[in-house]
Design a protein around this nucleic acid. Sequence first.
DNA 1: CTTGACATTGACGTTGGCGTCAAGGCTTAC
DNA 2: GTAAGCCTTGACGCCAACGTCAATGTCAAG
Lengths: 126, 126
Amino acid sequence: MRIGELAQRAGVSTRALRYYEQQGLIEARRSANGYREYDEADVRLVAEIRSLMAVGFTLEDARPFVECLRAGKPSGNACPDSVAVYRRKLAEIDAEVRALLARRAEVASQLALACPGCMFSKGGEP
Amino acid sequence: MRIGELAQRAGVSTRALRYYEQQGLIEARRSANGYREYDEADVRLVAEIRSLMAVGFTLEDARPFVECLRAGKPSGNACPDSVAVYRRKLAEIDAEVRALLARRAEVASQLALACPGCMFSKGGEP
DNA sequence: CTTGACATTGACGTTGGCGTCAAGGCTTAC
DNA sequence: GTAAGCCTTGACGCCAACGTCAATGTCAAG
């Protein structure tokens, strides 16, 4: 299939696919006229990328998973590098959550100072 | 005082101060040679901006607080617009935390699939 | 033949909050 | 007078993941 069909089947733009290729995540053979040609395996690769991005992974984070699939593994997370990324991501998320909660507490205390009663009413008291 | 001293006292760069001015958050009168001149009130304005940014506010978020101070209020959060921003920010943070926790759960379940036992050991089992 | 739907590469725009030159003017000290 | 240290405006760079346009090529249908 060509890039337009892959884009439609994977739910991404053709621009995104060319970008992934530029970043070395996917590759395509070329037909005689220079058009990119993809197969079913590429649909899976792109799907893997998108599902990882959907949970906050960057393209770089997705790279080990893609390489894992291209290495013939049935699943992108069946490789040690992928597992390492999972663990790193968990740590990152936990750190982010802690930072956010700390900020939340600060904001809440400032709000309580600025507007006593705001914290327990729905509409607040401006 | 001139921009260098304000920068030092407020703990920001001169570039940042000029940027804040460009965004309409602070303003400076000019001395005869064209240099920006600031006073103590500006130190407070910049301090307010920085303390808000430290908890994740954008410059736009900080605007009502600055206007509040410039309106003569003793505190930047003593105005209804500021309180509204606080409340909006709390909601945003809560939404972010929820999204992060949802992602965390997804990542954790994938990790559990990829590497049973990883979730309960420190070093994991790759 | 021409229209239209596909494809190609290249390059600039987006978002926030500045960092980092560049090229020059003002002031003070030696 | 000149070096040092302040200041001015202007403009490009950065980061991610593309969007969007430009100019052009390919191919099947009418």
